[in-house]
């Protein structure tokens, strides 16, 4: 556990001190658990991150490329194991978002389905308010959940 803490600390430190705020942290292993996403006015193909214990690489993008203003949207996200092993059939994933400064989350519960390619598609995402949101994707496998989070600032 101590080793894990030290590794995370290193990752976070390097990420925090990095000068290029729009670049996904490139520290490996493991990358920082938090990626800073641009605001919704700025389309971006994919937001990527590494789960809290480094087991998974997770990437997501709003279908259509841009998070709409106060309208529901869908998200496609991918989960791969950092050790390149395939995901088991037991794997489950969920996505949610909240506004930590306002003490509330989304007004909808997203529905997640896995498509034929192994990607996950979540419908029913709604970031209804402007401000900072934290988007979380939880991956559950063998009874253990790891979380990956991103900041999304909505205008």
């Amino acid at each position: 556990m101590i080793r894990l803490q030290q590794t995370m600390l290193l990752g976070l430190t390097l990420t925090a001190l990095s000068c290029d705020e729009t670049t996904t942290p490139s520290v490996t292993p493991p990358p920082a658990p938090i990626d800073v996403a641009p605001i919704n006015a700025e389309p971006r193909a994919l937001r990527e991150g590494v789960s809290s214990d480094g087991t998974y690489r997770v990437g997501w993008e709003p279908i259509g490329g841009v998070i709409p203003d106060a309208d529901p949207f869908a998200v496609r996200f991918t989960v791969t194991r950092s050790d390149a092993q395939p995901l088991t059939d037991d794997v489950r994933a969920s996505i949610d978002a909240e506004m930590p400064h306002h003490g509330h989350g989304m007004n909808l519960v997203p529905t997640v389905k896995r498509d034929a390619n192994g990607s996950f598609v979540a419908s029913g995402m709604l970031l209804h308010m402007s401000g900072r949101w934290v988007v979380s994707i939880d991956v559950q496998e063998h009874g253990v959940t790891e979380r990956t989070q991103w900041y999304v600032d909505i205008e």
Partner: peptide
Amino acid sequence: MCKNTESPNVRSGMS
């Protein structure tokens, strides 16, 4: 992170 979102079942770096 601005808010701790962990739950008892979540093995997170923040927990």
